[in-house]
Amino acid sequence: MNFNQIIDMLIRMVMRKLMNFGINKGIEMASGKGKAPAEMTPEERKAAGDMRAAAKRARQAARITRRMR
């Protein structure tokens, strides 16, 4: 392995972590985490919970598809 390959590998690893962090933050904000549960109506709380569950399933599906490659 030469030096360029090692640098490329490290850059890919850091970029993957940053992308996952950004995607997860975006999903959390979209699912209503920007608002405190005390400020939400019961319908909003249920919708936020449903959104978080759907996001969790989407992350699991993405993980499974990455393993199949």
Rank of each mutant, 00 (worst) to 15 (best):
L18K: 15
N4F: 15
R16G: 09
D50W: 05
D8I: 04
A62V: 00
N2F: 14
A55T: 04
T41L: 08
I23P: 02
G34L: 09
I64K: 13
A54H: 12
G32A: 02
A53F: 10
R12T: 06
F21I: 05
R63M: 12
N24Y: 03
G34R: 07
A47N: 08
D50L: 11
E28V: 00
G34C: 10
G32E: 01
R45V: 01
A38C: 00
G26C: 08
T41E: 09
G34K: 09
L18M: 15
R45M: 07
N20M: 14
K17T: 06
M1F: 05
A38G: 02
A30F: 01
A58T: 07
V14S: 08
Q5F: 09
P37D: 01
R12M: 12
K25N: 08
A36H: 03
E39S: 05
I23V: 09
Q60M: 13
T41W: 09
T65Q: 06
I27C: 06
K56Q: 13
N4C: 14
A55S: 15
R59K: 12
D8F: 05
I6R: 15
N24H: 08
F3V: 13
L10G: 12
I7F: 03
K25G: 05
A58Q: 13
I23W: 05
M68F: 04
D8G: 08
K35E: 09
R59W: 09
K17N: 11
M13P: 02
E28Y: 03
R69N: 01
M13E: 13
A38Q: 03
P37T: 03
M9F: 06
I23Q: 06
R63Q: 13
G22R: 07
M40Q: 09
P37I: 02
M29I: 04
S31M: 04
D8R: 15
R16P: 00
A38W: 03
D50A: 11
P42Q: 11
A53R: 11
A47Y: 05
N4G: 15
I27P: 00
E28W: 03
A62C: 04
L10R: 12
K46I: 00
M19T: 10
G32D: 02
M68W: 06
R45P: 06
P42W: 11
G32C: 01
A61N: 08
I7S: 09
M15F: 04
I23K: 08
K33F: 05
I23D: 05
M1R: 07
N4D: 15
R12C: 07
F3K: 14
I6T: 09
